[in-house]
Amino acid sequence: MSAEHRLKPVANADHLYEVERRARHAERPGFRISELQLSPTQTVPWHYHTNISDTFYVLAGEMRLFLQKPKEEVRLSVGQSYVAVAGRPHLVTNVGTGSLTFLVLQGVGEYDYVPLV
C-alpha cells in the first residue's frame, strides 16, 4: 500500500508545520479564509484535501507551488492566485529573501488535510 493511502486525514494541521504567523479571517461551515506568513526556509509540506480546493492569493513576497497529478510548478507574486483542486497533492514554498504572506481560501466542503510525508 502506498504512503498516500496509509496516512490519515486530520481536521487541524496547524501542529504539522511551522509558520511565522497564522490568522483565520473568516470561517463558516464548508468555507474558511486563512492568512499564512512563511519565512524563506519554511514550507507547507506535501498534502492534499479530500473535499475542498485551496485558492492561494499572494499578499507579499513570492510563492512557488509544486503540484502532482499532473506534475506542475507554479510561481505566484503579489496579486496573483492559483487554485489547487480537491485531491491534487501540493506543497507551498517561499522563494523570496523575505517573508511570504498569502491568503488561502478553502472550500466549499468539509475541511481535511491529508499529509503525504
Rank of each mutant, 00 (worst) to 15 (best):
G61W: 01
L38D: 04
G87T: 02
P45F: 08
S2H: 12
E73G: 07
G87L: 07
E73K: 10
N12S: 02
P89Q: 10
T43A: 12
A3V: 13
G107C: 00
G98D: 14
Y82S: 06
R21V: 13
V78L: 11
S81D: 09
F31L: 15
G109P: 00
A84S: 09
R28C: 07
Q68K: 12
T97V: 13
N12L: 13
E110P: 02
T55P: 07
S99C: 12
Q68T: 12
G61N: 04
E62P: 04
V83P: 09
V19P: 00
L105E: 06
P9G: 08
L91D: 07
A23W: 06
R22E: 09
P40K: 08
L7R: 13
E62K: 07
P115Q: 07
H5L: 15
I33N: 06
I33Y: 01
F56R: 03
V19E: 02
V44T: 05
M1N: 11
V85I: 15
G87N: 01
V74P: 04
V19M: 01
E72P: 03
T50V: 08
D14S: 12
D112T: 02
G87E: 08
Y113S: 02
G107H: 01
V108R: 04
V19L: 04
Q106E: 08
E73F: 09
L67W: 01
V83T: 15
E110L: 11
T50D: 10
F66R: 14
V95N: 01
V10A: 02
I52C: 15
R6V: 12
L36Q: 01
W46E: 02
L59R: 05
N94G: 03
V104G: 00
T97P: 03
G79C: 09
F102E: 00
V92L: 06
P40N: 11
S53A: 04
E72F: 09
H49F: 04
R24E: 15
F66W: 14
A84N: 06
V10M: 02
H5K: 13
Q106V: 07
P89Y: 06
D54V: 04
L116G: 09
P40D: 09
E110K: 14
E18T: 14
L16R: 10
N51P: 03
T43I: 13
F56K: 06
T93Y: 00
Y113L: 04
N94K: 03
A13V: 10
T50F: 03
Q106N: 11
A13F: 08
V10L: 02
Q80H: 08
S34H: 09
R75A: 01
D54T: 06
L59Q: 06
R64F: 11
E72I: 05
D14M: 00
P9S: 03
E72M: 14
D112Y: 00
S81G: 13
N51Y: 08
T101M: 04
K8A: 11
R24T: 15
T43W: 05
V78T: 00
V95S: 03
E72S: 10
S2C: 09
